[in-house]
């Protein structure tokens, strides 16, 4: 005996089964006295029901605290290297040992985490903002402008981004700020395409057309009707973008073309760990940064999935 999952109510409406009693109605209509539930609230309810999402939020909060508040509690010297302490074992003053130049590993994880999170979130924001604008304009304008703008996006998407980012990293020896733009420079293409698709769909909705009937201008239709209804997709995209950005940054760090010392990120830390794989068990150089990346990304994925469910259920209710 299976219980129906989310989004299934819409299937039932086909069979004329009233899945939720609409407010009772007389010749005129007396709406039942329930508090009006806004779309935001209903979305939140679906989101909150999803336990994985709550776990995800908890993990993300923990990571932020760990990376930004942690150093205030667990103070270590992240500026001066101390080769005498290089690769010291965990224990004593250094809970997770030291890395290959003598920095405290746990402290390094916090610093690296700051970079990973900052760059990840910032890159995602920049990419999503720019991509949304581009996609929305293209979707609205339609016709030739749309074709032209999308051709550019197609061209951009055809270039394997990893290659270009590597080349650019080699050219520019990036700092975290540059990394943000580097990653965003390619990620926005996918966002633009998605938003454009969403815009095209929304344009045909009757409530957008209705604006014309009451004498409103196109700009009103865009700002008041299309954008608020597209926000759902955009937010979901942005969430996944953060996870993707963290992974890209880690990959670049691993290849040695990411952020340069003394700045570091979890990926760079892993790269350093690689050199110690062969001779002896230096697990604290390898597992911690990797696990932190994985856990953070899974948590973000949980949140993104739950957000997607929340928005979809709202849209599907009839």
């Amino acid at each position: 005996m299976t219980i129906m999952g989310p989004g299934a109510e819409s299937q039932l409406s086909q069979f004329g089964v009233l899945t939720e009693a609409p407010p009772a109605e007389g010749e005129g209509g007396v709406l039942t006295a329930t508090k009006p539930r806004s779309a935001l609230r209903r979305g939140w309810e679906v989101f909150a029901e999803n336990r994985l999402a709550l776990v995800g939020v908890g993990v993300v909060v923990f990571m932020v605290l760990f990376c930004f508040v942690g150093p205030l509690i667990y103070r270590t010297n992240q500026i001066n290297t101390n080769l005498q302490l290089a690769t010291c074992r965990p224990g004593g003053a250094h809970l997770l040992g030291c890395d290959e130049v003598g920095y405290d590993q746990l402290g390094r994880l916090m610093v690296g985490g700051q970079t990973s999170l900052e760059v990840g979130i910032a890159a995602a924001l920049v990419a999503v903002l720019f991509g949304t604008l581009y996609g929305a304009v293209s979707g609205f304008a339609g016709g030739f402008i749309d074709s032209f703008l999308m051709r550019i996006v197609d061209a951009g998407l055809s270039i394997p981004y990893i290659m270009v980012v590597i080349i650019l990293s080699v050219i520019f020896h990036p700092s975290p700020i540059i990394m943000i733009f580097l990653i965003a420079a390619f990620y926005w293409l996918g966002v633009a395409r998605l938003v454009r698709g969403e815009t095209l769909t929304l344009r045909t909705r009757e409530y957008v057309q209705a604006v014309k009937v009451i004498g409103g201008r196109d700009i009103r239709a865009v700002v008041r009707h299309v954008v608020p209804n597209a926000i759902g997709t955009i937010v979901v995209q942005a969430t996944f973008a953060v996870a993707d950005s963290i992974l890209i940054l880690a990959g670049l760090g691993f290849l040695g073309v990411g952020v340069q010392p003394p700045a570091t990120d979890w990926g760079s830390m892993l790269s350093n760990g690689l050199t110690y794989m062969q001779g002896g068990n230096y697990w604290w150089l390898i597992y911690p940064p990797g696990i932190l990346i994985i856990v953070t990304c899974i948590a973000i994925n949980f949140i993104g999935d739950a957000l997607r469910d929340a928005f979809e259920t709202r849209l599907q209710r009839r």
Binding site: E25, G28, L31
Partner: peptide, 15 residues
């Protein structure tokens, strides 16, 4: 013939 409380409702809350 809709009640005055309708102003605060969202479309999906109506029949």
């Amino acid at each position: 013939g809709l009640p005055q409380t309708a102003v605060d409702r969202y479309p999906h809350e109506f029949s």
